[in-house]
Design a protein around this nucleic acid. Structure first.
Lengths: 117, 117
DNA sequence: AAGTATACCTAATATTTTTATGTATACGAT
DNA sequence: ATCGTATACATAAAAATATTAGGTATACTT
């Protein structure tokens, strides 16, 4: 059961927002392929996680969709709304801070953060 | 509800294993304080997450406990079993790889990993 | 006497993911 | 022609994990 190709839980929606910051619009399947490519296949998003996450972000008003038929198959393109962009910026920096902290916990040798008094 | 002091979901058990790799034995409350200290209060473990996680690791045979009364209060010290040490090494490196991949996804400018063919 | 810090714990709920399906089109190989 | 693979969407049951909100108790300070 050693599953080391999963994304860290809770990070999926941020990854989606980040990819859409970089690329105007993307469709679901494209997102799964992009993540595989960027991590050399070390990580993959399962569809059972991806689609509900996309639907939730849309329901929250962070993403909008337009469906389009390409080469005989329907694609549903997602892009950031204005709120989506704002949230993306904020959540990306939050996740970045978390990753730094996690690495601080894993790599000892780094000093603990000095508390901002 | 902007909760940026949560640990990334799924990483709690690895953090516990890591702290116990560094320090022979620790008790629950001590772990919560250590994480706060190492992250300057930016992250904290809730007790509702910590204790079930400790009990699960013990049930899996990765941790053993000894209870001791110190200054009038009962403390339950946890330490790694042999299996626990093995698992710790493996899970820590897995999480490290995940963090690298996540950062690759968040900081573009880095090239995608070259697939090891 | 009250509040804070220390120290353990659990139960209900919420969130998120995995696993397992299901549908359907396009295309290359047998 | 049919089979497998890739593309492309989706959901539902179950598992895993965390949050929230409690509960108990001791020690120390105000």
């Amino acid at each position: 059961m050693s599953n080391n190709q999963q994304l860290l839980k809770g990070s999926l929606s941020v990854i989606i927002l980040k990819l859409l910051e970089e690329q105007e619009r993307m469709y679901g399947y494209e997102i799964t392929q992009k993540v595989k490519a960027l991590t050399a296949g070390e990580m993959s998003i399962t569809e059972g996680a991806l689609y509900p996450a996309l639907h939730k972000l849309e329901a929250e008003g962070l993403l909008t969709t337009e469906t389009q038929v390409v080469e005989g198959r329907a694609r549903k393109y997602y892009s950031l709304t204005k709120d989506g962009h704002t949230e993306a910026v904020s959540r990306i920096s939050e996740l970045g801070a978390m990753l730094e902290n996690l690495q601080r916990l894993l790599n000892r040798g780094l000093d603990p953060l000095k508390p901002a008094i």
